[in-house]
């Protein structure tokens, strides 16, 4: 009987870990998407300072949670997102808006993919 209780405890622990991972990835990705969206729109409206602030916020948020997020997903995916955001910031600071739009869009696409891949949908499961 202790095996069954042990198994149920393990199941509980695994579910908690998975839910925590899901919650962390979702909230972080949502916040980063909001900041990147705001940065993109601000750049379009010509508010470069605000765009830089927003991208800085996105970068800071990603940095602060990166290590915990590494626990749940492959390092490669997050490294790719981080590099893309860094490049967007670089082009934004150097006023190369065309390249900024390209990199910011791909950052948004990557982070949306990253967020969506954890949803337990029919397509993701299959």
């Amino acid at each position: 009987m202790y095996r069954l209780y042990g198994a149920l405890s393990v199941l509980g622990a695994v579910l908690l870990i998975s839910l925590f991972g899901f919650y962390l990835n979702k909230t972080t990705s949502d916040s980063i998407i909001d900041h990147l969206d705001a940065s993109f729109e601000s750049a379009e409206e010509g508010k470069t300072d605000r765009a830089i602030d927003e991208i800085n916020e996105a970068q800071k948020l990603l940095h602060s949670r990166l290590e915990t997020m590494f626990l749940f997903v492959s390092h490669r995916k997050l490294d790719e997102i981080e590099q893309c955001i860094n490049k967007s910031k670089y082009y934004l600071i150097n006023n190369d808006l065309t390249s900024f739009y390209v990199y910011c869009s791909s950052s948004l696409e990557l982070i949306r993919d990253y967020r969506d891949m954890e949803y337990p949908t029919f397509y993701n499961i299959l």
Binding site: R3, L4, G6, A7, L8, V10, L11, A13, V14, I17, S18, G21, F70, L71, F72, V73, S74, H75, R76
Partner: peptide
């Protein structure tokens, strides 16, 4: 080592739990 370790641990634990539950 690029892969998160939890991505290995979680399936192992789930298989273990399924095995014990099925045997029970």
């Amino acid at each position: 080592t690029e892969q998160s370790m939890l991505s290995g641990i979680v399936p192992i634990m789930i298989l273990l739990v399924c095995e014990i539950l099925i045997s029970y």
